[in-house]
Design a protein around this nucleic acid. Structure first.
Ligand SMILES: [Zn+2]
Length: 420
DNA sequence: CGCATTTGACCGGCGC
DNA sequence: GCGCCGGTCAAATGCG
């Protein structure tokens, strides 16, 4: 019946299943991260995604079956009705078995999907229900009674600051959140393309700077806490300073991945300043090289600000200003300072930036993306970085930045920590 | 119509 | 307490 379905389903079905797997993977991660959250037994509908998934499975097993069947029938050819019937019976039995298994898988998947959607619902519920309180309702912001709980919106970053950490886990998050990574790159464009989608939510005139500062937030996923601010250097307007804050909530496109894991890695490491002494000897060096393998750039850590800030300098700018910039730096940076100033594989990084509007798609060639791509291109680095970060973070105090790096290089993860 | 950007108002922290 | 300042919000507006 339905068995003679396409055998060519290979590509589309495979695609489908792959996507499914991705989802499940993501789901599992999410689940892991959210296990603590209590599950309100609510009605959650199964969307068509379920159908899609099931269909895919059916197709797969069906195709398998049909293939076998064809072979058999051809081989047996003719005569021997009994034999043929036997065969048919056997085949039917097999088919039934397959169907059973299919059913099991189906239900299993359905279950998983339910869980997934449940979690998603919870997430949505956490993000949206409060929506916005009517704050500037009557001109006075706090005047109107707050009917809704002050929580509910994606409070984390905001609320994390003043309130004391409730658990060590939170402490870790808070620490991470404080971290910032700023990237300075040469770019004509108003904003560098880093693979993420950003929505502008504000713009201010900086004090000593004629150029305004723009505030963006990540829109790739609902509730993604990542923010970034973009500002042009006052002295050299060709230099764009992008400061990232927070960690992404969701899987990232490959282009953004390296960037994110890089920054996240740097941040994580720097924040874990309390690195265990033994490891401390090795890790910093490794990370120093890992974070920006062969870049003619500088990475500095500034402790002057309330939050630790990692600055990646991709400008390769002879301009002495940036070198003398921060008078108050930690001693840690020497590690970075040294090891990061070398080689010049990236020297041409100046940035092609399509000033014309049409090249948008190619504008991936923006500075950061270039660096990112180059970094990504080196599997060894990625894997090693992932492994390193994962081990450090996880071993240290929680899954903070490991999430990104880990998810990326996860597969080939355990590469060459010792290669350096 | 739904989305993103613009833009003035507002808030909390900080220094005076 | 007041005002400045950096950061954020959300109505209005623009755009596809
Ligand atoms: Zn994000």
């Amino acid at each position: 019946m339905g068995i003679d379905l396409p055998m060519r389903l290979s590509s589309p079905a495979a695609d489908e299943s792959r996507r499914v797997i991705d989802e499940m993977d993501f789901f599992s991660q999410e689940k892991t991260r959210q296990t603590e959250a209590h599950v309100p037994a609510g009605s959650l509908g199964i969307k068509k995604e379920d159908l899609t998934i099931n269909t895919g499975l059916n197709l797969l097993s069906g195709a398998d079956q049909s293939t076998v069947d064809d072979g058999q029938s051809v081989a047996d050819h003719e005569n021997d009705d009994e034999k043929g019937e036997m065969q048919i019976a056997v085949m039917k039995a097999k088919i039934e078995q397959m169907e059973e298994e299919n059913q099991r898988l189906k239900s299993s998947l359905a279950q998983m999907n339910r869980n997934y959607h449940s979690l998603q619902m919870q997430l949505m519920a956490m993000m949206q229900p409060t929506k916005r309180r009517n704050r500037r309702e009557g001109r006075g912001r706090g005047l109107t009674a707050r009917e809704e709980s002050p929580e509910g919106r994606w409070s984390p970053s905001r609320a994390a600051k003043p309130s004391p950490p409730k658990s060590p886990e939170h402490a870790q998050e808070a620490t991470m959140r404080k971290a910032r990574v700023s990237v300075r790159a040469r770019s004509e464009a108003s904003m560098i393309t880093d693979g993420c989608q950003w929505r502008k939510y504000g713009q201010k005139m900086a004090k000593g700077n004629p150029c305004p500062r723009a505030y963006y937030r990540c829109t790739m996923a609902a509730g993604c806490p990542v923010r970034k601010q973009v500002q042009r250097c006052a002295d050299d307007r060709t230099i764009l300073i992008t400061t990232y804050e927070g960690k992404h909530n969701h899987p990232l496109p490959p282009a953004a991945m390296a960037m994110a894991s890089t920054t996240s890695a740097a941040a994580s490491m720097l924040l874990s300043g309390s690195m265990p002494s033994a490891d401390g000897l090795i890790n910093p060096n490794f990370l120093a090289r890992a974070v920006l393998p062969c870049t003619s750039s500088l990475a500095t850590i500034s402790a002057s600000a309330p939050f630790p800030t990692v600055t990646l300098d991709l400008t390769h700018n002879p301009n002495p200003l940036q070198f003398q910039k921060p008078p108050a730096q930690f001693q840690i940076p020497q590690i970075f300072g040294q090891s990061l100033c070398s080689q010049s594989r990236f020297s041409g990084l100046q940035l092609p930036v399509g000033t014309g509007g049409e090249q948008k798609q190619q504008s991936l060639a923006d500075t950061v993306s270039a660096a990112t791509a180059a970094i990504t291109a080196d599997p060894n680095f990625t894997a090693a970085l992932a492994a390193a970060i994962t081990s450090i973070i996880a071993g240290g105090n929680g899954a903070g930045g490991a999430q990104q790096a880990g998810s990326h290089g996860g597969g080939s993860g355990d590469a060459k920590l010792g290669s350096g």
